[in-house]
Design a protein around this nucleic acid. Structure first.
Lengths: 240, 240
DNA sequence: CGATTGTTTGATCTCTCTCAATGGGCGTGG
DNA sequence: CCACGCCCATTGAGAGAGATCAAACAATCG
């Protein structure tokens, strides 16, 4: 389940994002105190790892932050895609919420000191890290608004666009293929909906001919502008 | 409405947070390209300012990010207290959401380049800024969970604790005085509730003897542990 | 191939929204 | 100073969106 270092991250270095900014000696330094972990789906990262190495770099798969109430209700407040940095350090008190793999996920975890030292000496890495974390703030703000003021159909439409923005997706003759990287029940936890409502919502969007659902984990967007109008609060029963 | 520089920030420098990390020459550099603005309640920051100086440092008052749907529904996805840094730069596309003063608010705004340059040369300022922005991510995650899975009473209880954590508050003989820095209608927009529901909820918490409401903008917490249990999802009608 | 987990559909319930109306606080202007 | 208007808080009654409950079915996995 855990490797000895961060060699794997070099895979990512050739792709995009944070690791690309690192010099080989910096990767070496990070590797010394890092750990590469493969987390099976539905398992969460243990507290000890979080305490010792609170900086997580997603390599593969989807990782979510799951919160739980005392009566068992649980929700996913955010999710992370490959290349994302998750900084679990928290000023006051401990982190509320667990890191959970929504799909089988691979990631590197770093201790805060080593990570900060590397950033301090590598401005471009610092810049990319700041950019990634800043983007998370804006995504979280959008998501909070979605949860606060949108109806189920609107939330689902927004979620489809969020998946589009955050993932690889393919387009062909007017249709856009979007990979939904998690189960419907996880979508529900993320959108503050029950899985039944997620199912009914997607089906309703399909009935309106805005999307097609070849399988639960894939969505083909047939009418982007109309779907966007739904996401932005237009009544779907009105023309346009 | 707008001053010529950021001299006012020196007030803050004597207090806490980001400005305290700055050398006087850095303050000078920032001042040259910054602007101090006093925003009356319910007014929002114009797009031009956001485009030119997307980094905002709250000095006084409460600032919120307000989003609006095409049918007029609006919500506040986050709010900021004095000392907070708001970084409105966004990787893809423009910022969704407006900066709105929830109380009369004073702040400084900086252009991105100057701000980044100062941070690049001042690691401790960089560190404080990162810490502030990181905290925003966690606050946003907590808030998303609140909106997604909590009932109105639970949201209000959580909100009271959020106000407690983010503000000055006074305690006396077992009671905690908490200043609610915004109107009930703003609380509603922030919590995804209607103002009527906010009113009913606070009143219900008062009926349960968890809080006392001397006036709309002040809450006295009488039973912290029980209120915390409500915030964490315990049924308020059960004993304990 | 059995067991567990996830998806779907239908029926009912409930919490919150919506609508409507009243009263209070505050600033404005006479 | 008071009158007026505006915004906000509050209360009540009703409606509706989504939760909940239940059951069948599909998918995944050991």
């Amino acid at each position: 389940m855990s490797g000895t270092g961060c060699r794997r991250c070099r895979l990512l270095a050739s792709n995009r994002g944070f690791c690309r900014q690192l010099q080989s000696d910096e990767i070496e330094r990070l590797s010394l105190n890092s750990r590469s972990t493969l987390l099976p789906r539905k398992t969460s990262l243990d507290c000890q790892t979080i305490a010792e190495r609170p900086i997580v770099l997603t390599i593969e798969g989807i990782i979510g932050i799951q919160h739980t109430l005392s009566d068992g209700r649980s929700g996913i407040s955010a999710f992370y895609t490959p290349g994302d940095i998750i900084d679990l350090r928290r000023r006051s008190g401990s982190v509320r919420g667990n890191l959970v793999a929504l799909t089988p996920a691979q990631f590197c975890s770093f201790d805060a000191e080593t990570f900060d030292n590397v950033l301090k000496q590598n401005p471009s890495a610092q810049h990319v890290a700041s950019e990634i974390l800043r983007e998370q703030i804006h995504l979280a703000a959008d998501h909070s608004f979605d949860l606060g003021k949108k109806r189920s159909l609107e939330r689902l439409a927004s979620f489809i666009f969020e998946c589009q923005n955050r993932q690889r997706h393919t387009a062909s003759n007017g249709s856009i293929n979007i990979e939904v990287p998690m189960r419907h029940c996880d979508v529900g936890e993320y959108l503050g909906l029950q899985p039944e409502t997620v199912s009914r919502g997607f089906r309703e969007l399909a009935r309106l001919k805005l999307i097609v659902l070849p399988e639960p984990s894939r969505i083909v967007v047939k009418n982007t502008s109309k779907l966007r109008r739904v996401a932005n609060g237009a009544r779907s029963d009105l023309p346009g």
